[in-house]
């Protein structure tokens, strides 16, 4: 039972990270690795505002998310948009985003130090007991927030004009331009929502355990693995992917050893890339364009 609860908590965290990442991935079609720094940044700013300046907790969460969105938008406006004007190959974006990640992560290290930090909001408690298993309040909040955000984003994508235009740009950017949808604007909106979700997930994760400047990178990689396994472009596949990644991790921790969790995750990814390269949903991965 404890195992099931842990899987639920972890998979909802991966779900929101995978969702935040794929929101940016759908319209732009490249891996925004610097997203990892946005995840960490959200958590560190909450720490900064709440612990250093004793700003009320809810206000500091709001400020942190706003700042993270700002960084996400700056990446898009100052870097990626300039690159789109030059028609660079997809690989260039990935390398640039790795460079951006290195810069942002080291800025975080410079300001906050490389040591492990904890956002302490309440006393450490045993947690609430449900069906003989323990779950902390923050974990309940994580599950609740992730599922709510997931539903909200899905509704947004399917039932609002802006959401529909994100999906339109994702499927055919050229046709969108013909119909007068500004792909730059749509991508900007996707970056804003994606960064906000990422910062939220980062804050939740940091409150549940602790944080180092690189913790966002690991989280993001799990999110990416969940996205690839789930099949790119499918939100339902993402749920399956997040569940699969979280449950293999916890099962590996339970039956083998916690130290092999990372390796097992990537072995799953590689197995998927060999036998089911299209993910659960069966949509095609991007291939070399002829």
């Amino acid at each position: 039972m404890q195992l099931l609860l842990n899987i639920l908590v972890t998979s909802s965290l991966f779900l929101s990270i995978g969702l935040s990442f794929s929101l940016i991935y759908y319209p732009t079609k490249f891996f925004h690795i610097a997203h990892a720094a946005v995840i960490s940044l959200g958590a560190y700013l909450v720490f900064f505002f709440a612990n250093k300046f004793s700003v009320p907790f809810s206000v500091s969460v709001g400020l942190a998310i706003a700042a993270a969105v700002g960084i996400g938008l700056l990446c898009e406006i100052l870097v990626y948009r300039q690159m789109r004007k030059r028609n660079l190959p997809a690989l260039a974006y990935l390398i640039v985003s790795i460079g951006l990640y290195v810069v942002l992560q080291n800025c975080i290290s410079l300001f906050f130090g490389d040591d492990t930090k904890i956002i302490n909001t309440a006393e450490v408690t045993v947690g609430n007991q449900i069906f003989g298993a323990y779950i902390t309040t923050i974990q309940i909040i994580t599950v609740f927030v992730s599922i709510t955000l997931f539903l909200a984003v899905n509704l947004f994508l399917h039932f609002t004009t802006t959401g529909k235009s994100i999906r339109a740009v994702a499927s055919n950017p050229e046709l969108c331009t013909i119909y007068g949808i500004s792909s730059n604007k749509v991508i900007l909106i996707a970056f804003a929502i994606g960064s906000a979700l990422a910062a939220t997930a980062g804050i939740l994760s940091a409150m549940d355990t602790n944080m180092t400047p690189t913790f966002g990178f690991n989280l993001l990689l799990y999110g990416i693995v969940a996205m690839i396994i789930g099949g790119v472009g499918s939100t339902r596949g993402l749920i399956a992917g997040a569940l699969l990644v979280a449950s293999t991790q916890h099962l590996a921790a339970y039956y083998i050893d916690t130290k092999w969790m990372d390796a097992v995750t990537y072995i799953i990814l590689i197995l998927f890339l060999i036998w089911k390269p299209l993910g659960f949903s069966g949509k095609r991965l991007k291939k070399v364009e002829v």
Partner: peptide, 11 residues
């Protein structure tokens, strides 16, 4: 990181 970004950004 910055050199990487600037060099790749300009193609």
């Amino acid at each position: 990181g910055l050199i990487l970004v600037v060099v790749m950004m300009t193609g």
